[in-house]
Amino acid sequence: MEAAMGLIRRIHPKRSDTALSALLSLLPHHSSDLLSQVDQPLQVLCDVDCGKGFILCEYNRDADSYRSPWSNKYHPPLEEALFPSSELRKLEIEANEAFTIYREQYYEGGISSVYLWEDDEREGFVACFLIKKDGSKTGHGRRGYLQEGAWDAIHVIEVGPEEEKAVHYCLTSTVMLSLTTNDESSGTFSLSGSIRRQMNMDLAIADGHLCNMGRIIEEMEGRLRNTLDQVYFGKTKEMVCTLRPPPEIVMRLPNS
């Protein structure tokens, strides 16, 4: 399993789905571990009731069907399916509405879905916030710079029980992205990758779960975007300039 994760860490992020299916066939006994540890690009289905898209994940799946957060119905229909309690469903509806506006403001497009379910072990609940954005010029790219551009974000929050008017939130976030520009003079330029981070916070219950979860996610997304931009992309640029230093660095060398 460790070796399998070692392979996933090195194989090109754009080919991680091929790598995962190869590993699943080589290590069928580890399939549940692999599926939970290797993040895959998000898939979308259309809710037949309202015509809106919703995102598929382990958290809205029952057998081979997926529950839409809009109509609360499974696609394809399923008998005796699992649903969140009516109280959680109410919060889920609110969360989906708020997150839709949040997404429009940060992403200017894309699809989002929020799923909640009871966590019997910890007397709390778990929430999964998902965003999928196609930023290419044929998708939702407002500025039209990208030949290809994808951003998939997965935020899973474990919400603990209320203790002395505070609640413990544990957020695990993954972002997978790829962007490619292509023009005649500079050729193709493509960056792709994935990172996963965790964050723990105790917040007062007074503001409500949705407000607390939203703030944590907003902070985490900002951090992840910044880390990708500054650190990860920055390191690859540094590498290019090590391989072939730009002229000003070459000229500075004799003095240093």
Binding site: Y102, Q105, Y106, E108, G149, R225, D229
Partner: peptide, 26 residues
């Protein structure tokens, strides 16, 4: 430019999202 087409650094409103007002989102 390019990264902004995936996700903006700040929302279109240029201020953090008003999560404290989410009750109004009904």
């Amino acid at each position: 430019t390019t990264f902004k087409d995936l996700r903006r650094k700040l929302p279109v409103t240029r201020t953090l999202f008003p999560w404290h007002n989410t009750s109004q989102f009904s």
